[in-house]
């Protein structure tokens, strides 16, 4: 509880510091909106030209896109400490400072940055989701709302976990940003389309190693009423938990990396 209070307090302070430059903030948020709108435009143009991707209609594709945007950018907004530049955190000596305080390292990393500009991307994601719901005539009910929330939440954990890979590499002073981007941003780009569009190896990658498909797409498909890879019912509620599993594994790897950091110096 105390940790949560500290996190909220930190977010308040960070928000305040971002608001010191309101003009810059507005401009950058606008840029984020336009950026994500560009991605959405690509989906719309594809739908315009091809009408459908396998059994998925334009509305379905927008829904998948929205799910991915919302959870990815919520993570980038509130988990900026991890999704940001971890190597810079080490270089600037901030990581050292975290060791000097009586709190967990992961807590402090999360407490040290926020990226409220991502609200722009999230807004576009919400717009895509709403549009997708309309076009695909989604009937919401309590169960679907629960599934939606569950998917977004565990999606965030999965994405945090993926970005932790970069943090771990950075501790071992391996330059890996572009490599890890292939999994994080690559995963985002790939899994804004349903996974059954992909050949075997990519399905395995995003179905098991970086299980975007299980966490985000299986629930999305159930909400749309067209189960993905035949997963429905209770199984659909269990699938997103793989995001939690992934995060927990990465959490321990991260703790191990911190031990390594303390024994090798910076």
């Amino acid at each position: 509880m105390n940790t949560l209070k500290l996190y909220l307090h930190s977010m308040k302070v960070l928000l305040k510091s971002q608001m010191q430059y309101p003009f810059s903030f507005c401009l950058q948020t606008l840029a984020q909106i336009v950026m994500e709108a560009g991605e959405m435009l690509a989906v719309l143009l594809i739908v315009n030209r091809f009408q459908a991707l396998n059994q998925w209609t334009g509305g379905d594709l927008l829904f998948f896109f929205g799910m991915m945007s919302i959870s990815f950018y919520l993570t980038e907004c509130f988990g900026r400490g991890i999704t940001g530049n971890f190597a810079a955190l080490i270089r600037s000596g901030n990581l050292d400072t975290f060791f000097l305080r009586p709190r967990g390292i992961m807590t402090q990393v999360l407490c040290h940055a926020i990226d409220p500009r991502r609200i722009g991307c999230i807004a576009v994601g919400v717009a895509a989701l709403v549009l997708g719901c309309q076009q695909s005539q989604v009937q919401w009910n309590g169960m679907k709302i629960f599934l939606f929330t569950e998917a977004i939440f565990f999606g965030m954990l999965l994405i945090l976990g993926l970005f932790l890979i970069e943090a771990v590499f950075a501790v071992h002073s391996v330059k890996s940003i572009e490599l890890v981007n292939a999994v994080t941003y690559g995963g985002r780009s790939a899994c804004q389309y349903p996974i059954d569009a992909y050949p075997g190896p990519l399905r395995v990658l995003f179905g098991t190693l970086a299980p975007f498909a299980l966490v985000l797409q299986v629930p999305s498909a159930v909400i749309l009423g067209k189960p993905l890879l035949g997963i429905d019912g209770v199984a659909a509620f269990l699938c997103p938990l793989s995001g939690l599993v992934f995060f927990v594994i990465m959490y321990f790897v991260f703790q191990k990396a911190m031990k390594f950091y303390r024994s090798t110096g910076s």
Partner: peptide
């Protein structure tokens, strides 16, 4: 080193995009 990472990253992106277009072309 960074270039190598970049190549792999860009290759993955390329494969992803091509997969999508192949699937799209299949239907239409």
């Amino acid at each position: 080193g960074a270039a190598l990472g970049g190549i792999i990253c860009q290759m993955v992106f390329g494969l992803i995009l091509i997969s999508v277009y192949r699937a799209l072309y299949m239907g239409n």
